[in-house]
């Protein structure tokens, strides 16, 4: 929801980034206020996934120019874990499987890290279990998933739901959802979208990175940005996504 005068959460200016010496982002500008939902769309290779990874601090990418402030902090001066503690969250396109680490142990460790950061009490396993009983409802997840190793043997849909469960537990200021809709059937898509919607407040924001308009039927964006050739080449309202669905991306690529 767009609120005049709400706080700026993320302010990216002329961001340039490369991987293995190849420049992928060639000057990205994006401002996200509290309460807003943004969608970044574009074809494969347009740089949209790179953008989300650069914001989260993936070590394979180097920032070569521009700046980004997040919640009043210089984002690129922070380690990935410091970004997370400052309230940035990335839902991964391909969530990793971690055999031997239980989902609940990881969630509790991550949650307590944030509690420390916020100067709040850590939760012991029993207290945390109570919290989890509430949180798993957000993504309609079977409690047995909590005791299993992180993402091990999960279906594609279950992995994505698990990402949203982590978001529900960590309550980030800004969540970046990287292709969260890819590989989801329609039921899983609905569950994931409902989960995200239930977590939206006037104080946080969501940036969805997606190829398809489909997700935006469920999580309605305030702004739609089109990325092409490492830049945002067009910004509009939710109707822009529909136009893209109809016309494809070629007309914009030509414009860029």
């Amino acid at each position: 929801m767009i609120n005049q005068g709400s706080k700026v959460l993320l302010d990216v200016k002329n961001l340039k980034a490369s991987v293995d010496g190849v420049e992928i982002l060639k000057g990205v500008d994006l401002t996200v206020h509290a309460g807003e939902v943004h969608a970044i769309m574009g074809v494969n290779g347009s740089g949209k996934s790179t953008f989300s990874k650069v914001l989260a601090g993936h070590p394979d990418y180097s920032v070569t120019g521009g700046s980004a402030s997040f919640a009043g902090k210089e984002l690129f001066a922070l380690e990935p874990e410091e970004r997370a503690r400052a309230g940035l969250f990335l839902a991964f396109q391909y969530p990793v499987e971690i055999p031997g680490v239980s989902n609940s142990a990881l969630l509790r460790m991550a949650y307590n890290t944030l509690q420390n950061e916020r100067g709040l009490e850590e939760l012991d396993p029993l207290e945390f279990e109570d919290l989890m009983q509430e949180k798993i409802k957000v993504v309609e997840m079977d409690p047995s998933f909590l005791g299993r190793s992180v993402n091990e043997g999960f279906s594609g849909g279950e992995k994505k739901r698990n990402e949203i469960l982590q978001m529900a537990v960590l309550e980030p200021k800004l969540a970046i959802l990287d292709e969260t809709d890819s590989g989801l059937d329609i039921d899983a898509l609905r569950i994931v979208a409902n989960g995200v919607n239930s977590l939206l407040t006037p104080d946080n924001a969501v940036v969805m990175v997606t190829h398809y308009q489909r997700l935006l039927n469920y999580i309605v964006p305030d702004y739609v940005h089109v990325m092409s050739g490492g830049r945002i080449v067009k910004t509009g309202g939710k109707e822009l996504a529909l136009e893209l669905e109809e016309r494809g991306y070629d007309w914009l690529r030509a414009a860029a």
């Binding site: 989260a56 070590p59 990935p80 874990e81 997370a84 503690r85 990335l90 969530p95 971690i98 991550a110």
Partner: peptide, 13 residues
């Protein structure tokens, strides 16, 4: 990838 994932959830290196 697993290391980056865990750090992105707030865990130190």
């Amino acid at each position: 990838d697993a290391l980056f994932f865990l750090k992105s959830r707030g865990l130190t290196e």
